[in-house]
Design a binder for these strands. Structure first.
Lengths: 373, 373
DNA sequence: GTGAAAGCGCTAACAG
DNA sequence: CTGTTAGCGCTTTCAC
């Protein structure tokens, strides 16, 4: 396991770095009490300017950079930091433009409130509960994890508040910020169906386990029936598609789905290849994310297949690059999701029950979708 | 100013969230000493399994999630987190694939050591010294900031160790991890020169101030002479180009540079347009980053200009996408840079002097560069 | 304006 | 295996 370094903590390993005095030392040097030095830093208006200057001078000379953050936190019971539990390894998270937008919102909202963001990677399967339990934060953002997760359990066991973003769904008593993935995805699906498409390929994502065992495209109905453990967000989106088809009484027989291990442009390429090989007659490819759709478009262009004349392509998220790609997709306010998450987490007003913030989605029709021919 | 929220901290605002007992309460409930409970969590092998189980049961019942991280940190003098001071706003940082690779390395290295990453955005001009001073971390990574920076001063005033990545250069006594940007950039420059190019456009980046005042391309020699404050990394790269030209006794007259406000594909497009408008005869465009080069290639393809037959394009960094772009560039081990930074920061062995880790760069020639014709 | 006293919650010797 | 003793460095009443 990886998180072992932390538990191997015995003896008193003198931490590296310069010594750095203490508040008490400064007080002694100036000949005042600790209170006064503390005031010099925290309530400058409580001292004469002259005394304050003398204290700061002494501090500087002693190499004292100000109150120790940890000690201060212990005393004030505020860590001035927010923990972010992410569903991916850090590096992977940063590669996903949707995640990036979201984190941007988080980051800005934190800055505005003088909080830092403590990023805690929680890739599926990794045992980082230790890390979660050791995080000095005022609260946690849990971002689109699947439910049975030891990290979530760890977060919820802690006394600090938490807000869940996107998933898991419906954890009782925990604040939630997200979108209606099902309704949102139903919008693109309906759009594609309305254009007359009946032979449709779907590219979704599935992580972990025995993925290699069944990478081949298969009918959507079969896939849904299999009901394997699936990420809630993905699952909701597929349900939206299903609902749209049912609403129109469209047969599910023409809808096939392939599942890829990552959300990346490359997997979009591979997904398109797999789909086209298995179902050469399809007229539309619906992707569960924009990134996958980019890969699909790349592949189709590469093959000389015109979009949307020959094949319609759609995404989901509306990340910044989607506009230049002319991608038909569903917009969700990613950045705002981040902001609202922080806002909700740090909102001190007492509440009767868990808060539930649902952000709007909207269909954005661009050049990548057109009527079937 | 933004960091004000933090300083408005008076009175004792009872933090939200469930109450959550203390170690002492658990000890009392079980009828043992605090040491024993502490041991139950930190040195499980020091107790009988039976007693430990009883303790854990009592803890669970009391809603005690384990030792308070802040109190533990105060006692052990370890925060189990490292601070990352970044030169950009969070969102912008994540948009840069080079930065993403680097952070990936940081993240992985942190995970392996059971550390979290506390991200502190430090966009130029923002006054986040307060945030830096309040961060509960074991040390700081300072990532490619320009020198006169209040945040750097704040970090260095603290007793914790720090390591500088890429820039600022040559801060005495502080560990450094980076590459030789000058020598690295000289490699591509020399490559382009060797291919016979003499009419060369350069796209660099400049942030802040009166940028709008002089966005027009101008001769490189003029730009270097202007000697405006410039980001060290960019400056070193341009120096590398200069050196390569001098080594070949190539006249600087044919080399023109445009500076863009961001490192993005879009700015690459704009840069190419500006350069081509000002210098229609150029046969090569050298970019200071891969991302800019992608934009240049996009624009050239869009114009029907063939690369490299008509115009050679080069980048710098060798981010993952560069391979599929067929971009000639200089490879730097971005992810390893992240790993080594953490490694260096957390290396407890006493050292005589500041460590200086220089990572290798190498020229990667792909399809985007060719002989002048 | 300034100080004395009392802990925040925990872990690390050291004895038993 | 378990308990006793001492703080880590700071902020905060409350009095002067």
């Amino acid at each position: 396991m990886t998180s072992d370094g932390a538990s191997t903590r015995r003896g008193s390993p003198p931490p590296r770095g310069r010594p750095g005095g203490t508040l008490a030392a400064v007080a002694a040097a100036v000949g005042v009490s600790r209170t006064t030095v503390s005031n010099a830093y925290n309530r400058p208006d409580q001292l004469s300017k002259d005394l304050r200057d003398r204290i700061m001078a002494a501090a500087e000379q002693l190499g004292y950079a100000g109150p120790d953050p940890v000690a201060r936190s212990l005393r004030t019971r505020q860590a001035d930091a927010v923990g972010l539990l992410f569903n991916e390894s850090l590096g992977y998270a940063f590669r996903d433009p949707g995640a990036v937008e979201f984190m941007h919102g988080l980051g800005e909202a934190c800055s505005e409130r003088g909080r830092s963001l403590l990023v805690i990677p929680a890739p599926p399967g990794a045992r980082h509960a230790e890390t979660v339990l050791r995080a000095a934060v005022d609260g946690f953002i849990i971002s689109s994890l699947s439910e049975p997760d030891e990290n979530i359990a760890a977060v919820l066991s802690r006394p600090q508040p938490a807000v869940i973003v996107d998933a898991p769904l419906g954890l009782p008593g925990v604040d939630f910020v997200g979108i209606d993935d099902r309704a949102g995805f139903a919008m693109v699906a309906e759009h594609v169906l309305a254009l007359g498409h009946r032979q449709i390929g779907v590219i979704s994502i599935r992580r972990g386990e025995d993925l290699a065992a069944e990478p081949e495209p298969r009918p959507l109905s079969e896939r849904m029936a299999a009901g394997r453990i699936q990420h809630p967000v993905r699952h909701q989106r597929l349900l939206g598609l299903l609902g749209a088809a049912e609403a129109r009484s469209v047969s599910l027989d023409g809808i096939w789905v392939t599942e890829r291990p990552y959300n990346s442009r490359e997997e979009g390429v591979a997904g398109a290849q797999a789909l086209l090989a298995a179902r050469p007659t399809l007229t539309a490819i619906i992707c569960i994310t924009d990134l996958l759709a980019f890969g699909v478009i790349d592949e189709l262009v590469h093959r000389g297949v015109s979009v949307p004349e020959q094949i319609t392509v759609t995404g989901f998220d509306d990340v910044p690059a989607s506009e230049s790609y002319g991608l038909t997709t569903v917009r969700q306010p990613l950045e705002e999701k981040g902001r609202r998450a922080i806002e909700t987490l740090l909102d001190d007003r007492p509440r009767a029950s868990a808060k539930r913030v649902m952000l709007p989605t909207s269909l954005t029709v661009r050049a990548s979708s057109g009527p079937v021919r």
